[in-house]
């Protein structure tokens, strides 16, 4: 499979290959990239059929390292490992301090691979400032356009949506979406999901915060929206209660080697989820996270059991 992948690389890039595979109704598992042991889990973007790796990378806090060259180089190593293990989506925002600049610096250092699925956000109340902010984001990332532009936390969404639709029509962005990480805004998010021509939606979902299962995830499936899941580890809080505990017996049934993979497999096994975006500043954690894209996934019965068992913890 590696050989096939390398041969095909010469003819077409990975992304167009994925889109073609999905359009033909082929499996969403892609041959393993260099460094990965087995095929990785890919998920289709419902509106286009293009597939992307089911585990992406968030940059909140972890990539906001300012001017420190040592820390920037460390983050570049995290990025290198991310891509080596088949990573695709990187999600950031102008709200994340220097994170966009650090991602851009890393991409310049490593070279942006074909697998990169660049996602950032517009975050300003002033509709007129949105275009300038997005142009600045392109400059910081060193990219001519983004794959996905989202409206951060629904801030000024009515104004920005117009701009985003125009940018999409003119090719400055391929997909558009909205995000929230606040449960209290789910109602407004639902209204947007139900009524606006967006491609992606991003919200919080994890084995403890499962409110999205009631309405958001079914609505996303119904409206054919790709779903990005933020805070998959509940800002790291999921790890404290399980620290030092052995993995449950069912973890072996879904090929999990650590708790990060348990938490992530719970998320990406939901049929409406497209991509989870854990954030990390450590290469070793990145390796653990990316491991969730290989091996078996839990079925619905096991998902229920996982939720029950982990709630008890």
């Amino acid at each position: 499979m590696d050989t096939l992948s390398r041969r095909l690389d010469g003819m077409m890039n990975r992304r167009s290959l994925l889109a073609g595979m999905a359009a033909c109704g082929l499996s969403a598992a892609l041959p393993a990239p260099a460094g990965a042991a087995s095929p990785i889990l890919m998920r289709p973007i419902p509106k286009s059929g293009e597939t992307i790796p089911a585990i992406g990378m968030g940059t909140w806090i972890t990539f906001n390292v300012g001017e420190d060259e040592t820390l920037r180089k460390q983050r570049s190593e995290v990025l290198r490992r991310f891509f080596a293990l088949g990573g695709g989506m990187i999600d950031s925002s102008p709200m994340y301090g220097s994170a966009e600049a650090v991602v851009g610096g890393g991409l310049a250092r490593l070279g942006a691979p074909d697998t990169l699925f660049s996602a950032t956000k517009v975050w300003t109340w002033r509709g007129s400032a949105g275009e300038e902010q997005m142009a600045n984001s392109r400059r910081l990332w060193g990219l001519p356009s983004f794959d996905l532009m989202q409206i951060h936390n629904l801030v000024g969404w009515e104004n920005h949506l117009e701009t985003l639709l125009r940018d999409k029509a003119e090719g400055r962005v391929r997909y558009i979406g909205v995000t929230t990480s606040h449960g209290r805004r789910h109602e407004e998010l639902e209204e947007i999901m139900a009524s606006q021509p967006i491609d992606f939606v991003q919200f919080t979902y994890n084995v403890v915060d499962r409110e999205a299962e009631q309405r958001l995830l079914p609505l996303a499936a119904e409206r054919r929206l790709a779903v990005i899941v933020n805070r998959p580890f509940r800002r790291g809080a999921l790890f404290s209660p399980v620290e030092g505990r052995p993995l449950p017996s069912w973890a072996a049934e879904i090929d999990c080697a650590n708790w990060a993979q348990v938490f992530l497999k719970f998320i990406v096994s939901h049929p409406a989820v497209t991509c989870a975006i854990p954030a990390t500043s450590q290469v070793v954690h990145m390796e653990e996270n990316m491991g969730a894209m290989t091996g078996r996934l839990p079925d619905e019965a096991l998902r229920q059991r996982m939720a029950r068992d982990l709630e008890a913890v």
């Binding site: 909140w60 806090i61 906001n64 390292v65 300012g66 001017e67 420190d68 820390l71 709200m95 994340y96 301090g97 500043s281």
Partner: peptide
């Protein structure tokens, strides 16, 4: 809601 870590704050202080 902090967007940076202690490590980064210390680094910023050192540069400052």
């Amino acid at each position: 809601m902090l967007s940076y870590s202690v490590e980064v704050l210390q680094s910023l202080l050192a540069y400052y």
